[in-house]
Design a protein around this nucleic acid. Structure first.
Length: 611
RNA sequence: UGCCCGAUGGUGUAACGGUAGCACAGCAGACUCUGGAUCUGUUUGUCAUGGUUCAAAUCCAUGUCGGGCAGCCA
């Protein structure tokens, strides 16, 4: 047991994550292997960031903040045909949102437009691009890093490799390059251009760069080993010809470096120490090391470490398929609240801190696993329960008249804003003779253990009176139109008969005071745990992933704020959508349901049904 | 039938040669002016076979199963 005076054993230990990568970094810190820990998050701007990227962001920025380092956001933009500024903008926004208030001070920036300096390190020529953090450069225009800012240097490194006889220009067609590569269980064979002279390769490479050849006419290749058991060591392509405009470098280049060549060099140029990526790059690591070691570089080389990416259940995370959902209008866009994108989850109402908590709690291993969405949903509920302001709203209204409550009379009742947080205070809600309750909260012929309203039965109206249902009024079609009830006027919360034992408590709003709001009821996008498993992921799209209703809300919601989270009591967690119009005197409210409260009654009903 | 990586309850993760723990899910109960939250109890696990050792989830060997790699994608 800890005592208040004992600082060495705090009652609540800070949740410091630990995993095999952090263990390695910690060891390096202890050994003083690097002057400073430097990581990077390197997305390709060809799609929106999703929950899997969130894990990577939290890992890389988490390590930077835990070990006093820096983490660069770098656009890995070496393929102009797939990339777009729309994506660099969304990526920048999403990363900033996710780390805001947590690791902003660890985010590396560079002055806008800056490219690497030619410097001398340990007596050798070198390229280095320092970083800044915003507090170092007040007033300067800063931006994230771009691999495409290093094209000059990467090109220079390519020339050095040719000079060393470690790279050559190859005239093989794409199909022949494929054929010569062999297969995993069969060695490849040497390109006929492999032993061309350094001078000829130098000349050809410079002509490639000058645009003398069409796309795919030639490549620059590393000269390693066509018989290597590792496919990526079989003279991999380093540069290809692509006469395409690049979103960041315009028309300055018609040759572009491949990922393997650009990535390790970008890491080196930025002074990265730990280059953390996902498992599929494990087989590329020998090439990563080969390139850097072949160049006789004067500064410490970055090292690559791999971990298993996050695979969440009940959704998909493949960029190609996510794009398909957007293009096919299965969702309204990349930021549709049902999407597993960071922008979608943000719009859904998931706080950044909650996403971070999830990304950290799932852990970092090399074991490829399916993470149950229920874990994420539990964390969202747990966090939102602590911060959400309680409000009363009725999604599917049923009119109730309290026949013994005087016509025209009203009163203001006290209601607490958050029972989990006394500091959240209280508010008042109006009560009157006509109310709305949830249609689900009344049943004419209820099953056993139903303890809401029924004919002749009693129920507590939250913060108000106990009412008894005297009469069910139906319309011409036989549908329930309204309930006529009497209230026990002594049973008001805080009143003389307030403590009468009543099994059920339901939410309500005063009809004349209620305000309308559009409420978007979101649910999981897919019904299958692994939508990808069966082949056609669209066959498990959840047809009920969105239902839109017009809800009756308590009047205080007129002042709802976009950055606050709400719990509509007994219904779930809600957040204002960006489509809502709040500035007018008569606001148009739109709420998104982040998540339902856990509903054990639904489980009871299922059991009932099974009998 | 090449090379690389992995395997701990239903799911995810910890234990770093010394009592297999935590979370989610499940089940049972208590409490509740939210059928939420909270609280209590509880079912279920070291891939297999050998070896090293006083002692193995952990080290070694072999096997089994799963994943990755044959883009001029990243």
């Amino acid at each position: 047991m800890s005592t208040p005076g004992n600082q060495n054993t705090p009652a609540i230990a800070p949740a410091t994550p630990s995993d095999f990568i952090r263990d390695i970094v910690a060891k390096h810190v202890e050994e003083k292997k690097y002057p400073r820990i430097h990581t990077r998050f390197p997305p390709e701007p060809n799609g929106y960031l999703h929950i899997g990227h969130a894990k990577s962001i939290c890992l890389n920025f988490g390590i930077a903040r835990e070990f006093g380092g820096i983490c660069n956001l770098r656009m890995d933009d070496t393929n102009p045909t797939k990339e777009d500024v729309e994506y660099v903008d969304s990526i920048t926004e999403d990363v900033n949102w996710l780390i805001s208030g947590w690791a902003d001070d660890r985010l590396g920036f560079k002055p806008s437009g800056k490219t690497p300096d030619a410097v001398t390190s340990a007596g050798k020529p070198d390229f280095y691009l320092g970083h800044v953090v915003p507090k170092n450069a007040p007033g300067a225009k800063l931006e994230p890093f771009y691999a495409s800012d290093y094209f000059d240097q990467i090109c220079e490194f390519a020339i050095r490799l040719i000079r060393k006889g470690k790279a050559y220009v190859c005239d093989l067609s794409p199909a022949d390059t494929d054929a010569y590569r062999g297969s995993p269980d069969r060695p490849g064979k040497d390109s006929p251009f492999r032993n061309r002279s350094v001078e000829e390769s130098l000349d050809l490479f410079s002509r490639m760069k000058n645009g003398e050849y069409p796309d795919a006419a030639r490549t620059l290749r590393a000269k390693i080993d066509m018989a290597s058991p590792n496919i990526w060591m079989r003279d991999p392509v380093l540069y290809r010809i692509r006469h395409s405009e690049h979103h960041h470098t315009g028309n300055r280049w018609c040759i572009y470096p491949m990922y393997d060549f650009a990535h390790c060099l970008s890491d080196y140029i930025e002074g990265i120490t730990h280059s953390i990526c996902t498992l599929e790059f494990e087989v590329h690591r020998p090439l990563y090391d080969w390139i850097l070691q072949s160049l006789d570089l004067p500064r410490p080389l970055p090292k690559q470490y791999e971990f298993a990416k996050l695979i969440p259940s009940h959704t998909i995370v493949s960029k190609r398929k996510l794009i398909q959902l957007v293009n096919d209008h299965a969702v309204t866009g990349w930021d549709d609240p049902r999407m597993p994108t960071i922008s979608g989850m943000r719009r859904r109402g998931v706080p950044a801190a909650t996403l971070r908590r999830f990304a950290t709690e799932v852990g970092v291993t090399k074991f490829i696993s399916l993470t149950d969405m229920a874990v994420f949903e539990h964390i969202i509920r747990d966090d939102l329960n602590k911060i959400a302001l309680r409000r009363l709203a009725v999604l599917r209204p049923l009119k109730v008249v309290i026949t013994n409550y005087p016509e025209g009379s009203t009163e203001e009742l006290d209601a607490v804003n958050n029972p989990e947080d006394p500091n959240a205070g209280t508010r008042t809600i109006p009560f009157s003779r006509t109310l709305f309750i949830e249609r689900d909260d009344f049943m004419e012929t209820p099953p056993p253990k139903y303890f809401r309203l029924r004919p002749g039965g009693e129920v507590r109206l939250k913060y108000a009176y106990i009412i008894k249902c005297d009469e069910v009024v139906k319309d011409a079609g036989g549908a329930i139109a309204e309930l006529r009830c009497t209230a026990d006027l002594d049973s008001k919360s805080g009143g003389p008969a307030a403590n009468r034992k009543i099994k059920g408590t339901i939410h309500w709003v005063s009809a004349p005071d209620a305000i309308d709001a559009e409420v978007r009821l979101y649910d999981r996008l897919f019904t299958a745990a692994e939508p990808d498993a069966g082949g056609d992921f669209k066959s498990s799209l959840n047809p009920h992933s969105l239902e839109v209703v017009t809800a009756k809300c308590e009047p205080s919601l007129k002042a709802a704020k976009p950055d606050l989270r709400y719990q509509f009591e007994r219904l779930g967690y809600f957040v204002l959508d960006k489509d809502a119009q709040l500035s007018t005197g008569n606001p148009r409210l739109i709420f998104n349901r982040t998540l339902t409260l856990k509903d054990t009654w639904a489980k009871e009903a299922r059991k009932e049904l099974a009998r």
